[in-house]
């Protein structure tokens, strides 16, 4: 089954031209043991006059993986881990694997863990770094992916703050990670 996880694809982004920004991301993520936070998502679809807005919480733990919980306007939960892949959790708490999402698993966990090597063959990355903020601009390397995704922008400082996925059709999805509480290992 073809699953293009638009959100996730934005997270897929990592670069062949790895430089300061990615290095900064890796350094920041290296000591992270866990992150709790909230997110908002605005999905802009051409035919709809107003964007679709949703919100929720996420929890990342290095040893376990990521739980992404949409709480408004409808509830849904996604679990991502290296050993079990990507799974959707239904209302009864049962998890169902999503096929064809191995790449997404690598991307989600790679972004939060700061290890993005597995994604280097997918995107070209341009990066900018101000004093405190870094920005990544990702464009697909393959023509096939380019037919769906135009580009992805990631902004962060001391972790990822915002992700914008712009589709080839013009639709876009903006995600903001808020109120992040980071647990770091003692070194």
């Amino acid at each position: 089954m073809i699953r293009v996880l638009l959100f996730a694809i934005s997270l897929l982004s990592c670069g062949a031209n790895a430089g300061a920004a990615i290095e900064q991301l890796a350094i920041d993520a290296k000591s992270i043991q866990g992150i709790n936070g909230k997110f908002t998502q605005s999905r802009h679809i051409a035919i709809l006059s107003t964007p679709l807005r949703s919100a929720g919480e996420f929890r990342y733990q290095r040893e376990i993986g990521l739980v992404w919980h949409v709480s408004h306007p409808v509830e849904s939960t996604l679990e991502i881990s290296y050993d079990k892949g990507l799974r959707l959790v239904n209302d009864d708490g049962e998890a169902k694997s999503v096929t064809g999402a191995e790449l997404l698993t690598q991307l989600f966990l790679g972004l939060f863990s700061g290890n993005l090597d597995a994604l280097l063959d997918i995107f070209n990355i341009d990066e900018h770094k101000d004093e405190a903020t870094w920005r990544l601009h990702l464009t697909p390397k393959s023509d096939a992916l380019r037919q769906h995704i135009s580009h992805i922008n990631i902004v962060g400082n001391n972790g990822v703050n915002a992700i914008t996925v712009v589709e080839t059709s013009g639709d876009r999805n903006e995600i903001h990670l808020l109120e992040q509480h980071i647990e770091r290992s003692i070194e």
């Binding site: 699953r3 293009v4 996880l5 959100f7 996730a8 409808v74 849904s76 996604l78 999503v98 999805n173």
Partner: peptide, 9 residues
């Protein structure tokens, strides 16, 4: 539409 797992369209 609000699921993080967007379907291939």
């Amino acid at each position: 539409l609000f699921s993080p797992v967007g379907t291939y369209r």
